[in-house]
Amino acid sequence: MISDTIKSSSFWIHFLLCYFFVKGLSPDCQEIEKHCSQCLLKLNDSYNKLEVVNNGCKQKFQDVYIWEDQDLCDMLVIACELNGIRKKDCLTMAEFTQMRRAKSEL
């Protein structure tokens, strides 16, 4: 019974339609960044600056990276781009945003 369903052309047509429909729903991360940034410009809220996250990451990685503060939009874009590939921690943010490395003493 299942093999007959899989063999039928209507199954494959529905499968392909669903696949392309879901694929079309994938977020455009650059659009998210554009709209979010425009919205944040209108707000002057310390919550959007993620001070706790930035201060914690800056302190944790001060010997490794020159930390560049991230805001909510940056975090949304990072989460969108990573799409569950890696966890969203300080190291991942630093690598993803290509922060400069701190000069090590040799």
Rank of each mutant, 00 (worst) to 15 (best):
M1A: 10
M1C: 12
M1D: 13
I2D: 04
S3Q: 07
S3Y: 13
D4M: 13
T5P: 01
S10R: 11
F11Q: 03
W12Q: 03
I13R: 12
F15D: 05
Y19A: 14
F20L: 08
F20V: 03
F21E: 02
F21Q: 06
L25N: 07
P27S: 04
C29H: 02
Q30F: 01
E31L: 15
I32Q: 05
E33S: 06
C36T: 01
S37P: 08
C39W: 13
L41T: 06
L41Q: 08
K42Q: 12
K42W: 01
K42H: 05
K49Q: 15
K49A: 15
L50E: 01
E51K: 09
V52C: 04
V52T: 08
V53P: 00
G56D: 04
G56K: 12
C57W: 00
K58M: 02
K60F: 05
F61L: 15
F61Y: 09
I66G: 03
E68W: 03
D69L: 03
D69W: 00
L72T: 09
L72R: 10
L72D: 08
L72W: 03
L76M: 14
L76Q: 12
A79L: 12
A79E: 09
C80P: 02
L82S: 10
G84F: 00
I85N: 11
K87E: 13
K88F: 14
D89R: 02
C90N: 01
L91F: 08
L91H: 06
M93R: 05
M93W: 08
F96I: 12
F96S: 05
T97E: 07
M99W: 01
R100Q: 10
A102H: 07
E105T: 11
